[in-house]
C-alpha cells in the first residue's frame, strides 16, 4: 500500500510517499529556515503562508519521482499536531481534502510519533520494544515504545527543550538562528577544562530534564570572562558537554530501569556528533544497540509521517471528514491503530 505523508507542523514543508512493500519511494522537503532567520525565530504567520505555497508543488514532485498515479495511492497522512496551529491546519486541510477526493482513508499523525518511528525507514530498523530519546527544538522526551501507538513517557523536559537550549545559547554567543549546528561547530575548538556547567537534575532519581538554567551559566561566564573568540568557543564546549552528559546519564538510567536493549535517538539534536559518540559509548557499556534515522530524517520531514500514516492506514484507521489541528497533543494519549 502506498501512502502520501504531509508535514507542516513548524518551519519545514515535507511531502513523501511510502510503500509498505517497497519502502520509501520519494520525499521532498522545503525548509523555511532562511525565511525566519532575520526574525531570530519562527514567525507563525509567515510559516503558514509559506506552507500553503509549497505543499502542492512538493506533492507533484514526489508523485513524479515515485512514478505514482492517484490510483496507486491507498491513503493520505498529515501531521495534525503538536505544532503551530495555523501551520498544522494547512497540511490538515490539503491532506484531508486530497484523501476525500481520491476516495482513500486519511490519517492524522502525531508529529512525535513520526520522529519515534523515523528509524524504521532505515535498512536495519529496531525491533519493539525500545527506549526512544526524542531531542528536538520543541521536545526532550524519553519514551518507552512497545509498538505503534504504545508509548509510555519515562521523562521529559520541565522547561526548555534541548534544541531550544542550544538555540538560545547560540544566540547569546552571537551565532544566529537556529544556532544548534553552529554552536556544535564552535564547541570543537573549545577547551573542555576551562568552564564546568552543571548537569541539571542528574544527582537525583528520575528521568526528567531541565535545560533552562544552562543559559544562565553561559550568560554569567560570558559576562565574567568577556566575549573573545576563544572564550566563546570554551563556553560552547562547556554547554554542549553539559547537555550531552545529561542526556547520556538519563539514557543510561532509562535502559537500566526498563531493562531494554535498544535505544532509538531522533529529532534535530540527534544530528549532534558529540551526542552520538557519547550515546554509542554508554549503549556499549549497557549492552544495548543505538538506532538513528539517517541525518536528513532527524529533523522534520514528510517521510516519517508517510511511514507512521501507512502503519495506521494498514491497520484500518481512518479520520472523519471533519479535520483538526491539535497544537498541544501529549504523546502518551495515542492508542495503537
Amino acid at each position: 500500500m502506498r501512502v502520501v505523508g504531509i508535514e507542516t507542523s513548524c518551519d519545514e514543508t515535507g511531502v513523501a510517499i511510502y510503500d509498505s512493500a517497497r519502502g520509501l519511494l520519494a520525499h521532498a522537503l522545503h525548509s523555511q529556515v532562511a525565511l525566519h532567520a532575520e526574525y531570530g525565530g519562527v514567525v507563525p504567520e509567515l510559516a503558514s503562508r509559506d506552507h500553503v505555497r509549497k505543499v502542492l508543488p512538493l506533492l507533484r514532485q514526489v508523485m513524479n519521482q515515485a512514478d505514482t498515479r492517484p490510483d496507486d495511492i491507498g491513503g493520505v497522512a498529515y501531521t495534525a499536531g503538536p505544532g503551530l496551529a495555523g501551520a498544522l491546519l494547512v497540511g490538515a486541510a490539503v491532506g484531508r481534502s486530497l484523501a476525500w477526493a481520491w476516495g482513500v482513508p486519511a490519517v492524522a499523525v502525531h508529529h512525535m510519533e513520526g520522529h519515534l518511528l523515523a528509524p524504521m525507514l532505515e535498512d536495519d530498523p529496531p525491533a519493539f520494544p525500545f527506549v526512544a530519546l526524542l531531542v528536538s527544538g520543541g521536545h526532550t522526551q524519553l519514551v518507552r515504545v512497545d509498538g505503534v501507538g504504545r508509548y509510555t513517557i519515562l521523562g521529559e523536559s520541565l522547561d526548555d527543550a534541548a534544541g531550544e537550549a542550544f538555540d538560545k545559547t547560540a544566540k547569546l554567543l552571537g551565532l544566529g538562528y537556529p544556532g544548534g549546528p553552529a554552536l556544535a561547530r564552535l564547541a570543537q575548538r573549545g577547551d573542555p577544562k576551562r568552564f564546568h556547567f552543571p548537569r541539571p537534575m542528574t544527582n537525583r532519581p528520575g528521568l526528567d530534564f531541565s535545560f533552562s538554567g544552562l543559559k544562565t551559566f553561559a550568560v554569567n561566564s560570558l559576562q565574567m570572562q568577556g566575549g573573545d573568540d576563544q572564550t566563546r568557543a570554551d563556553i560552547a564546549r562547556a554547554f554542549q558537554d553539559a547537555v550531552v552528559d545529561t542526556l547520556a546519564i538519563k539514557c543510561r538510567r532509562a535502559l537500566q530501569q526498563t531493562g531494554l536493549e535498544r535505544l532509538v535517538v531522533s529529532g534535530g539534536v540527534s544530528a549532534n556528533t558529540a551526542l552520538r559518540e557519547r550515546l554509542g559509548r554508554i549503549a556499549g557499556e549497557e549492552g544495548a544497540q543505538v538506532f538513528y534515522p539517517r541525518l536528513e530524517f532527524c529533523t522534520d520531514n514528510g517521510a516519517m509521517i508517510a511511514y507512521a500514516g501507512c502503519r495506521r492506514v494498514q491497520a484500518g484507521q481512518a479520520e472523519p471528514l471533519a479535520f483538526f489541528a491539535t497544537p498541544r497533543w501529549p504523546l502518551d494519549v495515542l492508542a495503537p491503530p
Binding site: V55, L56, A93, V94
Partner: peptide, 17 residues
C-alpha cells in the same frame, strides 16, 4: 488569515485530487 487558508488548502486538495 486562518479561515482563508483553510479554504485554500481544502480547494487545493480537492482540485489536485
Amino acid at each position: 488569515f486562518t479561515g482563508v487558508r483553510i479554504a485554500t488548502g481544502v480547494i487545493q486538495g480537492l482540485a489536485f485530487g
